Computed example of a mutant assay.
Amino acid sequence: MTIASDGGATASADVGSGHCDGPEYSPDGKWLYLNTESFSTAKGHAQLARVQADGSGFERLLESNTVDWFPHLSPDGSYASYIRFPSGTEGHPADLPVAVVLVSTDDWATPLHVWPLFGGQGTLNVSSWSPDSGRFAFAAYPLPDAEPDSPKD
């Protein structure tokens, strides 16, 4: 559901029957980016998607074996970051090996960089891009003597 900032009319988008979370407008306001379980029958298998702001054009951004959450576009719309949880993860819990992924919005399937780390809930829940689209921030929870282990595709 969307609602105008002045409290006006609401609109709804059909994004399937699966749980969806983390909606965020694209910088141009034309799309809502989100994660959804609508593409899988496996409980918790969130994938990245987008839907036009008018509720049409629902589409999957990439297909993976991992559980992918919180797509955040850079202010210029050229890049996106998201968090990759291990396959079989339900929700977005804390305290497990995850990866933060950077992609070009022209090619979601080919990461530009992957940062494996120990984290989860709170690592990348909200957009943290710098205004010039040159950097973004994320949080890791380092543990003594812990080796990060990246979830595999």
Rank of each mutant, 00 (worst) to 15 (best):
G7M: 02
G7N: 09
G7C: 13
G8R: 09
G8C: 10
A9G: 15
T10Y: 00
T10N: 05
T10M: 11
A11C: 03
S12D: 05
A13G: 15
V15A: 10
G16E: 02
G18V: 09
G18I: 11
H19P: 08
C20M: 07
G22W: 01
P23V: 03
E24F: 00
Y25G: 08
P27Y: 00
P27Q: 05
G29C: 05
G29D: 05
K30S: 15
K30Y: 00
K30H: 09
L32F: 03
Y33L: 15
L34F: 09
N35P: 07
N35M: 04
N35I: 00
T36I: 06
E37V: 08
S38P: 10
F39C: 10
F39E: 15
F39Y: 15
F39W: 12
S40Q: 03
S40N: 07
T41I: 08
T41Y: 03
H45W: 01
Q47C: 10
L48G: 14
L48N: 10
A49I: 03
R50E: 02
V51D: 07
V51E: 10
Q52G: 08
G55N: 07
G55R: 06
S56F: 00
S56V: 04
S56H: 11
G57A: 09
E59F: 00
E59T: 14
E59D: 08
R60D: 04
L61R: 01
E63G: 13
E63V: 14
N65V: 06
V67C: 14
W69H: 15
P71N: 12
H72Q: 11
S74Q: 02
P75C: 06
D76I: 04
D76K: 05
S78I: 05
A80G: 15
S81L: 03
S81F: 04
Y82K: 08
I83C: 11
I83P: 05
I83E: 13
F85Y: 15
F85P: 11
P86F: 02
P86T: 07
S87I: 00
G88K: 11
A94H: 04
D95F: 00
L96S: 12
L96V: 09
P97A: 12
A99L: 04
V101K: 12
L102I: 08
L102N: 07
V103I: 13
S104K: 13
D106S: 15
L112A: 08
H113Y: 01
